[in-house]
């Protein structure tokens, strides 16, 4: 089975190039994941660089662009891919080396939405003797938002994020924003929505839906962004 893999070391290479690798068909088992294939390929060329950690679709380290689609290599079966398998780093962010990208801008956008619970005023301390209880219905509203593993598959497939990665929050950060906006325990809903009401931060989203199509966890950031817009409108009316 043939693989065409993006290679680039900014320190030594003048420009990126695609390198062809071969794996013997006998080595490609039915249940082999792409990450397993990459590890075999790395035995052929130990300089081949990619990220990986948990190997079960939980850590979100091994996002890459495979045959034009952003995927997690550890949960993508090799047999489902059309050969030659073209593997590139996820687009839109600077390449550090081969399939490893610099995700600083992605994390900065995530940090910018204050992705943590704010159940008290800044000068108040939380009463640690009492739990912050939620009804089952209130808890249910968080479903579809909290499962994000920050792999970056959504943001790096979003043209709006490619164009303005330093200004547009991007689908992952906005999904996280939605998670805290609808959380019944958070008291900063109005502030959060006011902060998000910006021509760049939220309203660069053009409903292209690449984010939803590429999310390996089956989440729907596009719907979350539209819900944020509806909540902003509701806040204006209230």
């Amino acid at each position: 089975m043939q693989f065409s893999i993006y290679r680039y070391q900014p320190q030594t290479d003048a420009e990126p190039f695609m390198q062809t690798f071969e794996l013997d068909e006998a080595q490609v088992t039915d249940d082999m994941m792409l990450l397993g294939a990459l590890e075999l390929l790395r035995e052929q060329d130990p300089t081949l660089t990619f990220r990986s950690s948990c190997k079960e679709g939980v850590c979100g380290s091994d996002g890459m662009n495979v045959n034009g689609q952003n995927v997690l290599s550890c949960i993508t079966r090799v047999r489902t891919l059309k050969a030659p398998v073209v593997i590139r780093p996820m687009p839109g962010l600077p390449v550090i080396r081969d399939l490893v990208i610099d995700m600083d801008l992605f994390y900065q956008q995530y940090e910018a939405v204050d992705p943590y619970l704010q159940p008290t005023q800044p000068n108040q301390t939380i009463d640690l003797d009492h739990e912050l209880l939620q009804s089952p219905e209130e808890r249910e509203r968080l479903d579809g938002s909290y499962e994000c593993i920050l792999c970056g598959c959504c943001a790096t497939s979003c043209p709006s994020f490619w164009w303005n990665p330093d200004q547009f929050h991007g689908p992952a950060a906005l999904l996280a924003a939605r998670r805290f906006v609808v959380d019944s325990r958070d008291i900063t809903t109005r502030d959060r929505l006011e902060k998000l009401d910006d021509v760049y931060k939220t309203f660069r989203c053009r409903n292209i839906q690449n984010c939803t199509a590429s999310c390996p966890k089956g989440l729907n950031p596009s719907q979350a962004i539209n819900e944020l817009k509806s909540l902003m409108l509701k806040k204006q009316v209230d």
Partner: peptide, 13 residues
């Protein structure tokens, strides 16, 4: 004008 019509307001208009 860019300040007057931005974010949600622009979206609604």
């Amino acid at each position: 004008m860019s300040r007057l019509l931005t974010g949600l307001k622009a979206h609604l208009w």
